[in-house]
Design a binder for these strands. Sequence first.
DNA 1: CTTTTATGAATGAAGG
DNA 2: CCTTCATTCATAAAAG
Lengths: 200, 200
Amino acid sequence: MDWEKQQPEELNGGGGGAFVKVMTDEQMEVLRKQIAAYAAICEQLVDLHKSLSSQNDLAGVGFGNIYSDPLVTSGAHKITGRQRWTPTPMQLQILERIFNQGTHSVGRPKVHEITAELLQHGQITETNVYNWFQNRRARSKKKQQAAPANNGESETEMEAESAHEKTKPDDFQTPRILSSRNEHLTFQNPQASSAIHSVD
Amino acid sequence: MDWEKQQPEELNGGGGGAFVKVMTDEQMEVLRKQIAAYAAICEQLVDLHKSLSSQNDLAGVGFGNIYSDPLVTSGAHKITGRQRWTPTPMQLQILERIFNQGTHSVGRPKVHEITAELLQHGQITETNVYNWFQNRRARSKKKQQAAPANNGESETEMEAESAHEKTKPDDFQTPRILSSRNEHLTFQNPQASSAIHSVD
DNA sequence: CTTTTATGAATGAAGG
DNA sequence: CCTTCATTCATAAAAG
């Protein structure tokens, strides 16, 4: 910024050759507008972000056990980050067994029962179980329809029959162009709030 | 701000009794920091918004207009399919507000009314609105019953509920609703960019 | 450390 | 209303 350098002497009132930092009304107005502009922009963006994040934020996962292990506190900056459930090998084994026994769909009581059993092998909620079966079912189905393309002869490759784009070439779908890892934007800046008040 | 009034005379160098607007180095530093803080915050928010909005790339799209512009078919492989409505941030915000105001159930006329309003912020149909409320209601209910992870034995209400950090949603969000229909966030502000350069 | 893959979770919509 | 499905998003885990 350096107003003292850019300041033409004529504007310097009657100060003569004294070297003082001076702002004209116009300059102050410009400055004020700049700050006000930022304030407005920030406000818009915060609103926007809130509405955007409110939809997909937060998991209903009500367990807070994962980061309980002091050994794994290496991350250190993810203190309140969302953690998603990861089945223990034992849990997975049991779930797979149930699924393969023909129970592809679970009702509410069944979920409760299974959850109770799996709780003995690690943290888990009914929602986790419910989601697992749903995903398992979907995945299973998807795989099934991706397989049947080849006749008995030359097996060539998969996905040959996908001439009519059925949505889902297994190879490169990659809709995620960017990987956003800024889960919690921390624009908690004291300077900012003071600035807001100052300009207003 | 009014520095000329708050300015103690001692700091005014050798200016004597002349009434000029003067900034000390400290004051300028404060100002610079305030603007810089805004610049940083805006930058973060813009980045964040960009990543958020680009994820669900066709956010805010309606149905018929997706491939309406053959010129901009950048994606190119999305020609068919995809008819699922995705609420724009603005639409979502309005819907959430209505829901949080106690209107958890909507009748036909109400749906019509809401749809009309939301149409100003993007494509939407009455069915979308109806489904949204139904899903929202169901989800809300489920969340309620998913909370109790512990036995009821210890009913002492400690700060236990703070353990579930989320519970989010709901509700009482910003009392200040944006009334303007600035769907197109116009944070393209010349003032802002000039300010960015000024401080930097 | 960066990129890719596997999979848990969120959500609009359909069926009963 | 409730359940189920299809699709998409986000991230832990694996690969490079």
